[in-house]
Amino acid sequence: MATTIKAEHELHRRRFSRNVGLGVVLILFVGLVYGLTIAKVGTDPNDALGIPGTEASQ
């Protein structure tokens, strides 16, 4: 057995890059939606969820 079959084929590397890439994109997307929610709720209580602001916030 002079030659060995490599455990990690080029194909696996490509799949891994795809999985890692998609994972990173999903995490960034969750972070963005969270940030967007905070920004929307924080800046305009009347507009954010359609709930009228309290007297203090108005």
Binding site: L11, R14, R18
Partner: peptide
């Protein structure tokens, strides 16, 4: 050929 992340990008 199997696509990597860069190919989709």
């Amino acid at each position: 050929q199997e696509a990597g992340f860069g190919d989709y990008f």
